[in-house]
Amino acid sequence: MSSSIFDSSPGDSNPGGDFAAREAAIALPPRNTALRRFCRHRLAMAGAIIIAILVLGSYLGPYLIPYDDTFIDIMQRFAPPFSGAHILGTDELGRDMLARLMMGGRISLAVGFTAMVISMGIGILVGAIAGYYGGIVGAALMRFVDAVLCFPSIFLLLALAALIEPGVASITLLIAATAWMDVARIVEGQIRGLRERDFAVAAEALGASDLRIVFRELVPNAVAPIVVAATLNVAKAILLESYVSYLGYGIQPPTPSWGNMLNNAQIYLTSAPWLAILPGLFITLAVTSFNFLGDGLRDALDPRMENH
């Protein structure tokens, strides 16, 4: 190394180190290419940003505005938006619409998200058991899934809601109970295909337990469709919550949710249309954003696009 062209001045960057850094940059784990693809999907990015704004607005917003969602300002009933102290106007009791939309957003988003988590849990469990064990157990479970799927979910939900005292927790559970079947079918198909693969046989040859094979080897390989299903499930859950609350079986006033705000608004549709338009707008915004996010994730996580 005495006469090497590399040993010029001390403190000069080490060429070997440079090479190592370049090599590391090439060998990125697969998730980063997925992230890059996702960022290029404009609608999905827009969806993600809108969801972030809705979540932040719902949880931080109420601390930033001077009105409480239950504060009744009887002198300011039916104030239209952008006309006075209440930016988005007031409802029939003079309650601030913005405050109610924010609190309603908390409920609607929380119900949507929690229902998604629960339905994913049930769906993954049922799908994994059916797909992994197959045979009679699998067939019985999947025919049960098909049977539940035969009910239009809104009627199933209403039938169940009529029997159970409505509340945030019970509505969340009911929505989860009507939304897990699609996930179960997706997971069952994935696991059934993956369990025959050699790496699953390798784990079996090592004496791995069923639990380990399913959750360490198989489910991580089905993560892309599961994530997509999860996002779409949030949208579905928000919509279902709006349905039941609009029909009066869901979240009960005075607790606001976007759905029961719509329910309240129907008698004032001609005189105070903003009471219906505003919550409707937020439901649409949230649901489409989650759908776009799901589409973007589907494209980004598609294993066929991974460069092997």
Binding site: D198, L206, G207, P220, N221, V223
Partner: peptide, 26 residues
Amino acid sequence: RRALRPFRQRMQLVFQDPFASLNPRQ
């Protein structure tokens, strides 16, 4: 299966297709 576990350590398998036999997520 349970009784086989101690034997699993002593008998192993190498696969034909090295693309399918390794978990792509690990």
